[in-house]
């Protein structure tokens, strides 16, 4: 019936899966990750106990693979391709949304680097309160972490703004604007939570 022969039938699917992965599970994981780490504020002993419990959870590695590693890898690899196919022009068109467009890409790339360092040091290295405490005792280490948290949260919240367009939820300029404010507030709240996690290690 249709006379149109789609040349790459998977293109649409891949882009939509990429978008969905950003929220489910990655965004949801990020939210829980930042909230759970508030336990660090109760001190080293409590925090290390939580980590030990998690590490000995049966099948934890499967959960980590399915909920964290595989989705983030897929999203990051395809995201890098998306970054490559764009060509920013903020110097000529300095609109706020155009800045958000490039910041979405910069924050994505920074997040890859951050996750690689964060995971290799804490998941595969020695995961305890003291090791992160040692890392952020260095001002550069602290800046690296603070930026990592804020940019990951930015990427998630600006992504959530775009997500609503990708899925056809916010259609007109007014609904997009209201949703942008909501995402802005969520960005502030989640950044505060993330930085509060981090501040627990500054002692």
């Amino acid at each position: 019936m249709s006379t149109v022969q789609s040349q790459s039938p998977y293109h649409f699917l891949i882009r939509r899966v990429h978008s969905l992965l950003g929220l489910l599970p990655i965004g949801v994981f990020l939210t829980f990750h930042l909230l759970l780490n508030l336990t660090a504020r109760s001190g080293p002993a409590a925090y290390d106990r939580v980590i030990e419990t998690m590490r000995h959870f049966p099948g934890i590695i499967i959960v980590e693979l399915v909920v964290i590693f595989i989705p983030i890898t897929l999203h990051a690899v395809y995201g890098a391709w998306v970054v490559y196919t764009g060509q920013s022009n903020v110097l000529r068109y300095g609109y706020a949304r155009n800045w958000f467009y490039i910041l979405q890409r910069i924050s994505g790339i920074y997040t890859v680097i951050f996750i690689l360092v964060h995971v290799s040091a804490l998941r595969f290295g020695e995961a305890n309160f003291a090791s992160l405490q040692h890392f952020v005792a260095n001002p550069w280490g602290l800046a690296f972490y603070a930026l990592g948290i804020v940019l990951a949260v930015f990427h998630f919240m600006n992504g959530l703004w775009a997500f609503a367009i990708t899925w056809g939820l916010t259609i007109g300029p007014r609904s997009q604007k209201i949703w942008a404010y909501v995402c802005g507030v969520l960005f502030v709240v989640m950044s505060v939570v993330g930085l509060a996690d981090l501040s627990a290690f500054l002692r």
Partner: peptide, 14 residues
């Protein structure tokens, strides 16, 4: 739905 179609918009809104 094709390659180069609607999904390639990055919502820069320029």
């Amino acid at each position: 739905l094709d390659d180069g179609g609607i999904t390639d918009c990055g919502n820069a809104q320029n």
